[in-house]
Design a protein around this nucleic acid. Structure first.
Lengths: 146, 146
DNA sequence: GTATACTCTACTATGTTAGTAGAGATAGTC
DNA sequence: GACTATCTCTACTAACATAGTAGAGTATAC
């Protein structure tokens, strides 16, 4: 798998919203500042995340974004697959076709399937609740270390 | 990680040469036919593999390619990293810098480091000796099943 | 009704990928 | 020594993906 800037911003902005879960909405402007992303680019990412059912928005004055679901119900795998596409390292595994009769493909496909599986085992089990918890500790450390 | 056609051909051609290890050299033309790759494209890949010390060649009539080292000493990880570059999913992990002070980067970097590690654990432990053994069995099955 | 903030479409610059083309160098064979 | 098969090397190109930028449009609070 390869994580693009788009995917990276998506993960960061979902985390930013997870850290704000239960509170009021946050504007794109504020989110862009927090995660250090170009505002117009983040706009598009947020629009996609909305289509994917990850975030919801309110327009107009006092508008902004918030998570559409509890952070515990959103995983890194869900977000990155939705934004950056399949995480499998090669197309024959991405498409998941089963028997090819070509030994050159077959022996490597097994390797790539293993990689895909261990990758999924990780990214599908990291929720934004866990990440938000980690980020909170991180922040505390920073505060106390000043 | 993402495996390109270039990387895919590289792995296949090394396997083809591993299956021929100890015997005579094989021409690009023959290799291209066996792994079903565009001959001029494979040329470039083989040239790279030579620079990487994976294969060696003989010019002129009766020329061709063979493995430069025993198949047991070549891993999938070595070949794919040399041809397609680093396998880490994101640049901050690829470059391996240690402390960033940015919580948004830090919490995700741990995830990507885990992914990179499990990926390496797989691809760095698959040798072309093992793959050639698998491919041989595969071939036998095909022969007997006709 | 006006300011603020989200929505949507289009455009662009840059880099990567997957090739293709063709001239050049080398080594066997007649 | 010419011929031919084969590897070597550089340059070029078409198509696509990435990382933005630009600007007009729409909804909502006050």
């Amino acid at each position: 798998m390869r994580v693009t800037y788009r995917g990276d911003y998506a993960l960061k902005v979902v985390l930013a919203l997870a850290l704000n879960y239960g509170k009021d909405v946050v504007t794109i402007h504020e989110l862009a500042k927090r995660i250090d992303a170009p505002i117009k680019f983040l706009e598009q990412v947020l629009l996609d995340l909305k289509k994917g059912g990850f975030v919801e928005s309110r327009r107009g004055k006092m508008g902004g974004y918030r998570l559409a679901r509890p952070p515990g119900n959103i995983t890194v795998g869900q977000v990155i697959r939705f934004i950056d596409g399949p995480t499998e390292p090669i197309s024959c595994v991405r498409n998941g076709y089963s028997s090819c009769g070509d030994m050159y493909k077959c022996v490597f496909r097994k390797v790539w399937q293993d990689v895909a599986k261990t990758t999924s085992d990780i990214i599908d089990n990291v929720t934004f609740e866990a990440l938000a918890f980690e980020a909170d500790s991180e922040q505390e450390v920073l505060v106390y270390s000043i």
